[in-house]
């Protein structure tokens, strides 16, 4: 069960004279914005359900980590970024972040099936997808590596003085990797423009946060580096968006890095091969019933008098997009054998 964010009243800053960002406010979305967020989240949900299905049918191999349950995080945060200047990097649970950036579901799905038309020409797979066009830098399979790499992207933003911000996502499990803290230290030392997003979905594979983390309030993990942290309800897309706005304000004003701990939940196992015996069926069901991020947006839309009936065409459209992506991914050819040897190096020596 997702813990609710720490209450304001109990959030006593460790050092009171240190400047802190404001408590973020829930984003006040227009009806159109809300519909767009709904659409993106639904696309991720349906896409991932289809990916799970194709995995079961043998079209997708290896590791495949689904984002179901966490949709509000990537959609809410990335809706606040400037796609022309800001960069995004994440770990291996990366399908959602790409879809949230508007990358064509067809080339993502075709990568999952290992086809030449895949975004990495079939040579990356689920965990290794990139889009330099969208400033999406992967897609990294080593837990925590994206934190140092993302810090390097932030370094490049500062070096180039391009006004961009890097957003580096990592999980509660990665939050215990040493290089995360090496990166925190340099990011604050050099005041790098980076938002560290801890997607706390409660489980690092099968180990719960409480069983792995001496300090389980992960937003506090930057304190000894003087990096402020904010805990956010990651099941509420408007809370996510609001937190992103506040974090961006902090980072863009040159105050250095900031940490957002997104309290969220993954419905599926760690990967497709995870039977998820470490938690009860009831626990998962309770989150689905009470905290589902997409159902929450629907309720929000009711405030704008948008009925379930009116959402049906969106649902149908999304299903069509996903079905087409799946058909494409199943039918488009595998890479040529000659592709085995391409792109090992850029230059010829």
């Amino acid at each position: 069960m997702a813990k609710s964010p720490a209450k304001k009243a109990s959030a006593v800053p460790a050092v009171s004279n240190r400047e802190r960002p404001n408590e973020p406010e829930r984003y006040k979305a227009t009806k159109e914005e809300l519909l767009q967020l709904y659409r993106q989240m639904l696309l991720i949900r349906r896409f991932e359900e289809k990916a799970g299905q194709l995995y079961g049918l043998g079209f997708i191999g290896g590791f495949c980590h689904l984002y179901i349950g966490q949709e509000a995080v990537a959609v809410g945060l990335q809706s606040a970024l400037n796609g022309d200047t800001d960069s995004v990097i994440t770990g291996y649970r990366d399908h959602g972040h790409m879809l949230a950036y508007g990358i064509d579901p067809k080339v993502i799905m075709a990568e999952l099936t290992g086809r030449a038309a895949g975004i990495s020409r079939g040579k990356g797979g689920s965990m290794h997808m990139f889009s330099t066009e969208h400033k999406f830098y992967g897609g990294h399979g080593i837990v925590g590596a994206q934190v140092s790499l993302g810090t390097g992207l932030a370094f490049a933003h500062k070096y180039n003085e391009d006004g961009g911000v890097a957003m580096a996502y990592f999980g509660d499990g990665a939050a215990n990797q040493g290089q995360v803290y090496e990166s925190f230290n340099m990011a604050e030392l050099w005041k790098l423009p980076i938002i560290y997003v801890i997607e706390n979905n409660q489980y690092a594979m099968g180990t719960s946060v409480n069983r792995s983390s001496a300090e389980d309030q992960l937003y506090k993990r930057g304190e000894s580096f003087r990096i402020p942290g904010i805990q956010v309800d990651g099941m509420d897309v408007l809370a996510c968006r609001g937190a992103a706005e506040e974090a961006l304000k902090w980072v863009r004003s040159g105050k250095g890095p900031i940490i957002l701990e997104m309290k969220t939940y993954r419905y599926r196992g760690h990967s497709m091969s995870d039977p998820a015996k470490y938690r009860s069926r009831e626990e998962v069901q309770a989150v689905r019933d009470k905290s589902d991020p997409i159902e929450a947006v629907k309720r929000e839309l009711e405030g704008f008098k948008v009925t379930e009936e009116q959402l049906k065409p969106i649902e149908a459209e999304i299903r069509k997009i996903v079905a087409e992506a799946a058909d494409f991914a199943e039918q488009t050819p595998e890479p040529d054998a000659a592709e085995l040897y391409t792109d090992v190096l850029v230059e010829t020596y």
């Binding site: 990097i89 590596a145 140092s148 790499l149 390097g152 992207l153 490049a156 290089q179 230290n185 340099m186």
Partner: peptide, 13 residues
């Protein structure tokens, strides 16, 4: 580990 990653990320950037 940290600065090798930062350097690599900067190259990607």
């Amino acid at each position: 580990y940290g600065f090798a990653g930062v350097g690599t990320g900067a190259a990607m950037g």
